[in-house]
């Protein structure tokens, strides 16, 4: 196996005086889906957002430690945040398509990064991304309709298509199914399976069954620290820590 795609070392995150993450070290590999689980407020979403520097938008957030993407420190002064976010895409908890057409939603990323030369190539990228997100057959006849007119599950797949249109190396998913019904959730999980081979995927989830279904590695967070990290089957069948066992058996959380 190659060196890790993303490696985090001794990461601390503070919101003002309050410490949200303490001393977390984690490696994420390409071609693997890693699930971050833990009770509410345990810092798993905060940690996810440090991986593409979305925490920069929060005024009093401060990150310490080293996070490297392919060996490059992403918090280094010379790191271009725009480029970083193109390489590390993100899907959010609530589907948030732009209030523009379906086509424009997907074409936006390639367009601002100048990835397509000419409209034919752009249309090509849009079609490929929508196909990969499993949405093409449902929307191919109404690409000019508003993205916000789709159903919740379709909107979330549109957001995934938007994220993969810029050809990222890593996709971060912040509880992508928590606002969706079980059928739409199943579609997204299927999609994660299909995307697995191409990208390093990190998914935050509240739903332990979901973590067990979609991921190969699982990290359990509690009160801002990493309690246990291992293969998903180990975590769910043979947890080493008492706290992990209590959580996955439903004692708390």
């Amino acid at each position: 196996m190659n060196a890790s795609k993303i490696s985090a070392r001794n990461v601390n995150v503070f919101y003002g005086q309050k410490q949200a993450i303490s001393d977390v070290s984690l490696d994420f590999d390409s071609d693997v889906v890693t699930a971050l689980i833990g009770p509410s407020g345990c810092g798993k979403s905060t940690f996810l957002r440090t991986l593409n520097r979305m925490n920069d938008t929060i005024a009093n957030a401060r990150v310490e430690g080293r996070i490297a993407l392919d060996g490059e420190d992403i918090y280094a002064a010379e790191m271009d945040v725009v480029q970083l976010r193109a390489r590390v895409g993100m899907v959010f908890q609530k589907p948030n398509p732009f209030p523009k057409s379906i086509f424009e939603n997907v074409a936006y990323g390639p367009r601002i990064h100048g990835l397509a030369s000419g409209s034919a190539q752009l249309a090509d990228i849009v079609e490929r991304s929508l196909k990969r997100a499993g949405l093409w057959d449902e929307v191919k006849d109404r690409l000019s309709d508003s993205g916000t007119a789709l159903s919740g599950g379709q909107q979330q797949r549109l957001c995934i298509a938007r994220a993969i249109a810029v050809d990222p190396e890593v996709i971060l998913m912040d509880e992508p199914c928590s606002a969706l019904d079980p059928i739409a959730t199943a579609r997204i999980e299927e999609l994660i399976h299909e995307l697995k081979g191409r990208y390093a995927i990190v998914i935050v989830t509240h739903n332990m069954q979901q973590a067990a279904r979609v991921s190969q590695r699982t990290a359990f967070f509690h009160l801002g620290s990493l309690v246990e990290y291992g293969t998903t089957s180990d975590i769910f069948t043979n947890p080493r820590q008492e706290r992990t066992k209590d959580y996955i058996t439903g004692r708390y959380g």
Partner: peptide, 27 residues
């Protein structure tokens, strides 16, 4: 303008000025 729109644009790698002129200002 909902913050989720800003997040979405930043998430695909829009620069702050692109977020403002492509999304926030039109809305």
């Amino acid at each position: 303008v909902p913050p989720s729109i800003r997040d979405a644009a930043l998430g695909v790698g829009a620069s702050p000025i692109q977020v403002v002129f492509h999304h926030v200002l039109p809305l």
